[in-house]
Every structure is written in C-alpha cells, then in structure tokens.
Nucleic acid binder design. Structure first.
Lengths: 147, 147
DNA sequence: GTGACTTACTTTCAAATTGGTAGTAACATT
DNA sequence: AATGTTACTACCAATTTGAAAGTAAGTCAC
C-alpha cells in the first residue's frame, strides 16, 4: 500500500490499517492475547516462516502494540508482551471473530466463554453513551475542515 | 498466507482473516459503507491500481460481502453493493476505527455522528446478554474436541 | 571440555503479489 | 466522425512472501 500517505488520512480506520492491514499481524496479536509471548511459540502455533515473523514482531513492537521484555539474562532471551495499546486491540479481534463465527462458522469452532460463569460471550457493538447498537441508527460522517 | 489450511482453523478470527487480511479489502468495505458502489469511485477515492481493485472486488464478491448489480443495460454497467454479510461487517470497521482514533488520532480526523442527534458515536464492545464490556472480565477459550 | 540442545533469529532465493502506466471494449454524446 | 465515459485487462519492474537452511549465544550432560 502506501503507508506514508495513509498516515495523513483523516480516517481512523485507514490509520489503523496503515500498519495492521495484514493477516499475520492480527493473528500474532490474537495469539499474544491468548498468552503466547515467545518467538518459537508464535512460529509453531502459526506455522509462519521465521523471516516474516521477525518482521511482523518488529513492526508490532515499533508501532507500540508489543514490547520486548528480557525474561532471561543468561542466556539473554527476550519475549514479546502486549502493551496497553495492544491490549486495547482485543475488541477488534473479538469483532472480527464475531463476524467469522456468523458467516464462516461451519464445522468445529473455538468457543469463548466467561471464565467464571462459563456463559458464551456474544460481542455486540453499542454506543458508549446511549447503549444503542451500532448500525441500528443512521450515521453521519463529518470530514475535518481546513487543510 | 495459506488460505486452504486457515479455512479449517477452528478460530473464527482466522477464518475471517483468511480472505480479509489485507488493507485494501477493508478500505473498499469502508468506502462501500460510505456509499460508494462503482469501480471508478473506489479507484479514485482509494488511489488503488485498477488491477488490484479488480482482484479485490472479485474476491469480496466471491466471498459474499459485495454483489454485482447491473445499473445500466445500455451500455452494460455494473456496480458493487454490500450484501447482508457485507453490511454486518460494519462493527469490525467501527472497532478498528475506534482503536485508530485512540492510538493514531493525532491531527485532523473524520468524525462519526448520529445522523439525527449529531452526537458523536463512541463504539464500545459489550456482551450481548450481560452488557458487560468486553475485556473487563477474564475469558476462557475452549477448543472444539474430537477431530 | 566436547557434543548435543535450546532459542531467537538471519540468509538465501524462487515464486507470488503489488503498484503504476498504458491500452482496450462497449457503448453514449456532440 | 471524434470525443468521452466506465470498467476494466495487459504488461512489467519492484517488492514481498514462503520455505529451507544456517547461525549466534548461550546451557546442559557427561
């Protein structure tokens, strides 16, 4: 794509996709939320080539969604943990997952439960203030003025 | 990536990303929600090369998020309109946008308002049943059993 | 203290994909 | 007949990917 131009795009979706618009990055973030932290854990779980994984982890770190943490001094070993921005990405993954479940849900599927109650979690996007479901009311997009 | 394997993946996120894991597709969907339908509208608005646009539109159509509709018989002209599955993708775009606004929100940014009240919309992901915000409670992932 | 093992990579390279420009097909309009 | 519109296709250089093999810095077992 064209990362330079897109970062000036006033659309927040475009800005997010400027660096996150590839499947591997999102799957790495999914695994990071699942608890994986180490290079080889990601590599084995995703079946991704090490060269690509290196680049993706570097990009996610650079972009502030992951950070490197030394977990052993001798030998020096680093792992990748989610930052606050990375943890805040969870709703995106959930929403993608909800769509996938609804429209690509044939066959066996992972289920996501409340850890305590065991109830299946069904994500729904609402407006924070009104609580009205997104999509139920017409919206208006306002471009920023001036230049 | 490896679309074949990933379609059997029991993770709904992976299934969604198997075909949607690229930025252009998501930006096309964004523009489609914004009201664009025609090849040249997408092309000009996105600044995307026609070859790539052709491929992406074909993929989105193939995957059932867009469908072609004849809007003129003479000359024969087709446009791309969102299907139900495509329209249901809106929460994903909103959630991505909310993240982008929070973490890449420097400078001028598009605003999304309720068309009637004019109030800014702030998307929040909650559980459909309990109304509890996603991320506030620990979750448990259950792999499908058997094979 | 030598050989096997672990972990996190780098190197290499063919194959696939992208991005950009130019051209085309099927019509309508003037 | 010339020009314009719309939705593409063809082409090609450049980039990115995917897969396999190799490496660096250590540890551990004997």
């Amino acid at each position: 794509m064209n990362d330079k131009n897109i970062c000036d795009d006033p659309c927040p979706i475009a800005r997010c996709l400027a660096f996150l618009g590839d499947a591997w990055s999102l799957l790495i973030l999914r695994d990071a939320h699942f608890g994986l932290t180490r290079f080889d854990q990601f590599r084995k779980n995703l079946g991704i080539g090490p060269a690509i994984l290196t680049r993706r982890l570097a990009a996610l770190t650079e972009e502030g969604l992951l950070e490197k943490r030394l977990y052993s001094e001798r030998p020096p070993r680093e792992e990748y943990v989610l930052t606050t921005a990375g943890r805040d990405f969870l709703p995106v993954l959930f929403t993608i997952g909800a769509w996938g479940r609804k429209y690509r849900g044939e066959g066996r599927l992972v289920r996501i439960l409340d850890a305590e109650t065991g109830a299946e979690i069904r994500p729904m996007l609402v407006d924070e203030v009104t609580g009205i479901k997104i999509g139920d009311r017409p919206i208006r997009i306002v471009e920023p003025d001036g230049d």
